[in-house]
Amino acid sequence: MAVSTDAARRSTREGRRTGDSEGARRLASTFAGYFILIFFALVFLYPFVIQIANSFKTEPDAAANPLSPIPDPVTLNAYEKVFLNTDLPLWLGNSLLVTIIITVGRVFLDSLAGYALARLRFPGRGALFSAIVAVIAVPGVVLFIPKFLVLNQLGLYNSYTALILPVIADAAGVFIMKQFFESIPVSVEEAARIDGAGVFRTFWSVVLPMARPALLTLTIISFQGTWNEFAHTLVAVQSPELFTLPRGLADLVSGSLGKGNQYPLKLGAAVLATIPVAVIFVVFQRYFVRGANEGAEKG
């Protein structure tokens, strides 16, 4: 609110200086603009305030004052229970392991393929690229049961391999990397090739270092996507020892602890699931923005 009154005062001054109706109109629209922005900032952020605040409340307090941003009294009870009475530490470990392997795998494999599609001439390149674009267009939800069928047939169902292997390369990432490699000048690589470097060495030590911004974008959207992935875990694993955090959280809410409310505990677990992506988001905000807009170009 401080921001808005401040700006309003400034606009008022401007308005007086020009002293006409244009100034007054501008003041009114600036004020309305801030009002709308602040209202929606509250709408978009207050649920997170509620989430965090209630995870530090006692159960009666959360039930009685769900809207209050201040826990009274503050208690770590929910987090103690989450760590001691649930398998959350295990899920956290699984999520970290799976997310890191998939992110590293995707960044490496997607850039290899993206580079080949952008720069290397090989038979079938055009057809392969069309196939990749077609794969991007397949709605993921349709692949639930099909993916399970393959994992089951290959004897991989309910293993870490099932969590990781099917998603360790993704068509959208290949597309992003191909677009990027096409945008950098070819002359540097040619110089390296003339100096006698092989295709892989040129790619590894000349091209990849130039691709740092694209690699970072891909790393971040892969990390975010994999950390939050839920549906794939449903068709890949069923043993609680293999649950990732979203899967464990869904399980926690829908059953194993009974239908009792226990909201502080559930919200605390949700906070823990949100933190890693939130931190990365705040630090690498502009790469997220780039990722979203690359998604737009892709479509």
Partner: peptide, 26 residues
Amino acid sequence: FFRVAFFFPSVTSSVAISVVFLFIFA
């Protein structure tokens, strides 16, 4: 700030957010 605030819900876990909305609409 506003751009980041409006975009933030999009990057969070759908499961975690659903849990929050279960509480909000309880």
